Amino acid sequence: MKKDNIIHARTCVYNVNYHIVWSTKYRKEVLTENIQSYLKSLFDEIAHDKDFKIAAMEIMPDHVHVFVSAHPKISPSYIAKMLKGISARKTLMQYPELTKQLWKGHLWNSSFYIETIGSISEDVIKKYIENQKTRG
């Protein structure tokens, strides 16, 4: 296990990471460079306010990738909800012309993809658990 990724909190020690991906409504390519820059800044602000960290992010014209680290008490669905909900409201206020390009003024598709990411692979963890009783 990599020791540099471990975070020490008051009640636990953890390394909890998520890769979250979501798209614009109808996969419309509406996220221009200016909007992408605005969203990156906004995502950092949301993460700071909601007490999680964005380790990496990339915004494409029609979808978003974020790599997030969070305390175990913060659910992954809460992280996605905060990033999508707050960013949609503020972005549509900042760029009202987007509502004309998106049906009913929804910026994001309602669904998202999420994957847990650790410092070691799934296979390594399975083997480690399976070999617990054989360790000397």
Rank of each mutant, 00 (worst) to 15 (best):
E58S: 12
T134K: 15
K100Q: 05
D49M: 08
I6Q: 11
K104T: 07
S111T: 09
S77K: 05
E115N: 08
Y113C: 03
S77C: 03
D51L: 14
K73M: 06
V68Y: 12
K100V: 00
D4G: 01
L42S: 00
F112G: 00
S75Q: 10
I59E: 10
S121I: 00
A55V: 06
M82A: 13
K133H: 15
R89F: 09
A80E: 01
H8D: 02
R135Q: 11
I125N: 06
L31F: 10
T24H: 07
Y78F: 11
R27W: 02
N109M: 02
K81T: 05
T24A: 10
Y78D: 15
P72I: 01
L42P: 00
F52G: 08
Y78N: 15
E97V: 07
M60A: 04
V13H: 04
Q94Y: 10
Y113K: 02
R135T: 05
N15E: 11
H106L: 04
T91A: 14
M57H: 12
L39F: 08
V66F: 05
K28G: 01
T99L: 07
E58D: 12
N109Y: 02
D123K: 05
L31E: 10
M82R: 13
E58M: 12
G118Q: 01
K28S: 05
R135S: 02
S37R: 13
W108N: 03
E33M: 06
V21G: 03
K127Q: 08
D44Q: 10
A70F: 11
N5V: 09
F43Q: 07
Y78T: 15
I117Q: 03
M60Q: 12
I35H: 15
T91S: 14
P61V: 15
F52V: 14
K127M: 04
I20T: 06
W22R: 09
K53L: 11
N131H: 14
K126F: 03
S23K: 03
R10V: 06
M82L: 01
P96S: 06
S111I: 00
S69C: 04
I125E: 01
I20S: 03
K2S: 07
P61F: 14
W22S: 12
V30K: 09
F67A: 04
G118V: 02
V13W: 00
I129A: 05
I129R: 06
S87R: 08
V30Q: 10
D123F: 00
E58V: 15
T91H: 08
S119L: 00
P76N: 08
A47T: 10
I7A: 09
V30G: 12
S23Q: 07
